[in-house]
Every structure is written in structure tokens, then in C-alpha cells.
């Protein structure tokens, strides 16, 4: 097992924005207020324990986006907790793109997924439209060493202690833990591939026309957001470091 020193850990946002240019062609505009909260404290922060940023945006001239957030929390020069979230506005039924990319010396923990905002057992057409585009990517990356180990494939298992979180996942999550530096980079490639699928779906998305379907969609979407904002154990760590007020802002931007 290779241990990766802090300075050699993946520069998550630089890789996404500069190397892979995932937002090229999109005009991002800073989101200054979110759910009535001033987002400024999130754009750059520093305490004796942690430093970093969560930067939320919307898309200039578009009503499709609730928020696009990327960010990194660097903890005591030991670990990086990185996040990427794309959430559509409530007029669209796009899945929630969610990525946790947490790197420490011994391992990288990853969850990247397009979380459905309707019950896909009831709406198989939703799965076909928004989630099935991931099927080949999922089958490629789920075999990475660590995600598959000793002949067992462990995806859909990283959230084992949190049933509410597992219930939010699509049939195509990339989640688990990897160790080797080259595998960590391959995981980053998976994040890029998933992000590109979502951004492509977003470009083609049409507003919801059926009010009953929209109510159903919003019920599930709010339930997912409530769970992750209130119960994600990462939120407790953020609360200890930054206090309750900033925790509320940060977790709302991350999820």
C-alpha cells in the first residue's frame, strides 16, 4: 500500500477545471445568496485546523441551475475533503450530481453518482433517459482495484452505515475506497466522465410540464437534500471546526 503525502494529493478542482476543463463553454456566474444565506464566508476560509473554499455558481442566462458547487477542505495538512455538486432548479427533473472525493495518505474515498429525484422503479423511463447513459462508464470503473477486491465488487457499499444515503443512490454509483496513486487518478477520470454526462443532460433538459410529477419530484428531492444536509457525518466535522451557522451554509452548498 502506497501512502501519499499531502503535497502529492490530487489537486481536485485544478484537475477538473484546468486539466479537464469540465466547464468549458459554460458561463458560470457566482451565486451570492443561497437559501437566504450570504455565500461569501464559503468562498475562502481559514482556521487553525482547516482551510479551503466552496464556490457556488449558477449558469448565466439560464433557469436550469439551482447551484453548481465545487470545493475543497484541507484538514491539518493531512487530508483533503473535496466536493462537486450540480443541482438543477425545481423546474427540471435532472438527477443530483453528487461527488465526495476524500483523500488521505492511505486511501481515497469516493462516491460519485447521479442521484434520481423520482422513484425509478415507478418511472423506468427516467432511468433510461438520465441514468442509463452511465452504464458503460460504471461497468468500466467499478472494476478498479479497491472497488473490486478478491473477486467481490463492493460498489453500492461505501454508504453501508447510512441506509438513507444508499436509498438515494442510482443503480450506477461509483463508491468505495482505493489506495494506489494511479487508481486514485483513474477515480478522478470517473468523476470527470460522470460530470460530463450530467452537463450534457443539462444542455438537453426541458422543463417539467406535469404538475403532479413535479410535486412527486420535489418531495423526493427535498427528502434527499434533508438527509444529506442533516445527517451526513461530514456535517458534524464541519460544525466542530466552523460552528453551526457556517455548517448550515457549507452543507447546503455541498449538497
Amino acid at each position: 500500500m502506497a501512502r501519499v503525502p499531502f503535497n502529492d494529493m490530487i489537486r481536485f478542482t485544478d484537475e477538473l477545471l484546468v486539466t479537464h476543463k469540465i466547464f468549458d463553454g459554460l458561463e458560470l456566474e457566482p451565486l451570492n445568496t443561497y437559501l437566504g444565506m450570504d455565500t461569501q464566508p464559503a468562498w475562502e476560509y481559514k482556521t487553525p485546523l482547516a482551510s479551503g473554499f466552496y464556490k457556488p455558481y449558477v449558469l448565466k442566462g439560464s433557469d436550469k441551475i439551482d447551484k453548481i458547487t465545487y470545493g475543497e477542505l484541507h484538514y491539518m495538512g493531512r487530508a483533503k475533503y473535496c466536493a462537486l455538486n450540480f443541482t438543477a432548479s425545481d423546474d427540471y427533473d435532472l438527477p443530483i450530481f453528487s461527488c465526495e472525493f476524500d483523500e488521505s495518505a492511505p486511501r481515497l474515498s469516493i462516491t460519485v453518482d447521479l442521484m434520481p429525484v423520482v422513484d425509478i422503479a415507478v418511472h423506468p423511463e427516467y432511468r433510461e433517459k438520465y441514468l442509463d447513459p452511465l452504464k458503460d462508464i460504471w461497468r468500466t470503473y467499478r472494476t478498479l482495484p479497491g472497488l473490486t477486491k478478491d473477486g467481490r465488487c463492493h460498489v453500492q457499499r461505501r454508504y453501508a452505515p447510512w441506509p438513507w444515503a444508499r436509498a438515494a443512490l442510482s443503480p450506477y454509483p461509483i463508491d468505495g475506497r482505493v489506495e494506489e496513486p494511479e487508481t486514485r487518478l483513474a477515480v478522478l477520470d470517473a468523476v470527470v466522465a460522470y460530470a460530463r454526462v450530467w452537463l450534457d443532460l443539462m444542455k438537453k433538459a426541458e422543463p417539467i410540464r406535469d404538475p403532479a410529477y413535479k410535486r412527486e419530484m420535489i418531495t423526493r428531492k427535498r427528502a434527499v437534500q434533508k438527509y444529506f444536509r442533516e445527517l451526513d457525518p461530514g456535517g458534524e466535522v464541519i460544525k466542530k471546526i466552523f460552528g453551526a451557522e457556517k455548517q448550515k451554509l457549507f452543507v447546503s452548498l455541498i449538497f
Partner: peptide, 15 residues
């Protein structure tokens, strides 16, 4: 279980 893995059929796994 040896060989534990997600269900292969995407539609079945989704339900």
C-alpha cells in the same frame, strides 16, 4: 459471499 457483486441487469437492479 465469494463473487458478491451488483446485480447485472440494470432494470432489475433499479427496482
Amino acid at each position: 459471499l465469494p463473487g458478491m457483486a451488483p446485480e447485472e441487469n440494470d432494470a432489475v437492479r433499479a427496482v
